[in-house]
């Protein structure tokens, strides 16, 4: 790891100011950024910790939506969202291991947009709103391909606002080594229809499966998607699965998600 300066501001404004000074980068749970710095793949001169900012912490309900501070750990979400939004809390509880869940945060995961990460499936699958220090961004506009998002340089996610689903579930098939999602599907049922978001499978990162959404909106039953399939085209190919296998898992995990939500 190269040397760096460490700052821990108490407000979003101070964090934004600190990020404006030279080669700075926000640090949240550090579960992705620190390993990449140790491997010398990343060498920011200033690390701006977001975990001391009170307004970026915690889970709060506001009518039909649940707002989660970007610096809230997965463990906190798993616990504090359990009664209001069990599908989302269960997803947080399936991320990594206890050590990772006690450090890793919602904002870090969403900003990083790893194609195999779990949270992007929930954010896109619920049609959540990403709140930053300057604006609000709809999930459908936010994720722009693997490791790419709509965030501008120096822009900080402060929180995410999730519309609470009538029923929801996340079905995750583990990549055996990393235990990220080899393919994970978040299914959420709203009065306005069903949303289905898929992570882990596509070279383009998290995506919505429109055909399944239509079928499930008509009939919220695992059998409704039994005959559907996604194309293996542009699915990820690696040691752990072929594109065909991942395409197959999209349907299987979607069905399991629906069954778990029903």
């Amino acid at each position: 790891m190269h040397n760096f300066e460490f700052v821990k501001p108490a407000s979003v404004a101070d964090a934004v100011a600190a990020l404006g000074r030279g080669e700075a980068q926000p640090l949240s749970g550090g579960q992705t950024l620190i390993p990449s710095m140790k491997a010398r793949l990343n060498a920011p001169e200033i690390l701006v910790s977001l975990t001391g900012i009170t307004e970026m912490q915690g889970v709060s309900r506001d009518g039909d939506s649940l707002t989660i501070g970007a610096a809230t750990t997965h463990a906190t979400v798993a616990r504090d969202a359990a009664s209001d939004f069990p599908g989302l809390a269960a997803l947080a509880g399936q991320i990594g291991d206890p050590a990772v869940r006690n450090r890793g945060t919602l904002g870090g995961s969403v900003a990083n947009n790893d194609p195999s990460a779990c949270y992007p499936a929930a954010v896109l699958g619920t049609g959540a709103t990403i709140v930053t220090n300057t604006r609000e961004i709809a999930a459908d506009d936010f994720f722009q391909g693997m490791f790419t998002t709509a965030l501008d340089e120096g822009e900080i996610i402060t929180g995410v606002r999730f519309p609470i689903a009538q029923a929801s579930a996340y079905a995750k098939f583990l990549q055996p080594a990393s235990r990220f999602a080899l393919t994970g599907v978040f299914v959420a049922k709203y009065a306005s229809g069903v949303r289905v978001a898929v992570t882990g499978a596509s070279e383009n990162g998290v995506f919505r499966w429109a055909e399944a959404e239509a079928a499930l909106s008509a009939q919220f039953d695992a059998e409704a998607v039994a005959g559907l399939s996604v194309s293996p085209h542009e699915m990820i190919s690696d040691l752990h699965g072929t594109p065909e296998y991942r395409a197959h898992l999209v349907r299987v995990m979607n069905q399991r998600g629906v069954r778990a939500a029903s």
Partner: peptide
Amino acid sequence: LLENCVYDDQGQLLSGSYMDYTM
């Protein structure tokens, strides 16, 4: 069931960490 040390045809180790080598 799990472990596999794999090189690609350029001799690069594809399973060079616990992200890809399944203990």
